[in-house]
């Protein structure tokens, strides 16, 4: 795992990836289009960020069909949850130190 010295995970350097993780932390599942709406990014941009999180095994995919339309939902894996919590803790520590 690529960790920065102070506990920040490299995968969360990007604010879009951080946004994806925040949305998945509080909602059990989220579909692609909903994420796109909240983050206001293009399809390609969002897809590449999700792919990066998938590669880290932080985010899982669930594909299904609503009628004939494919529907892709994303959720946070236990590994992703742990990494995100650690990242939040690191942020917290930073504030405590500077405050």
């Amino acid at each position: 795992m690529k960790l920065l010295i102070n506990g920040f995970h490299k995968a969360f350097e990007s604010r879009i990836r951080l946004g994806i993780m925040s949305a998945l932390a509080i909602n059990d599942k989220f579909d692609f289009n909903a994420l796109k709406e909240f983050l206001e990014v293009t399809d390609g941009n969002l897809a590449s960020h999700i792919k990066a999180l998938e590669k880290e095994e932080f985010v899982g995919v669930e594909k299904s069909f609503i009628g004939k339309k494919p529907n892709t939902k994303y959720f946070m894996t236990p590994k992703g949850k742990k990494a995100f919590e650690n990242h939040l803790k690191a942020l917290e520590n930073l504030i405590k130190k500077s405050g």
């Binding site: 920040f8 969360f12 949305a23 909240f38 939040l88």
Partner: peptide, 23 residues
């Protein structure tokens, strides 16, 4: 490497995203 104020903005972003996506 990010600056400290970047991390503070990250926190604001996390909070806002959690709020917007759930409520």
């Amino acid at each position: 490497m990010k600056e400290e104020q970047d991390y503070l903005r990250d926190i604001t972003e996390i909070r806002s995203m959690m709020e917007r996506s759930s409520k």
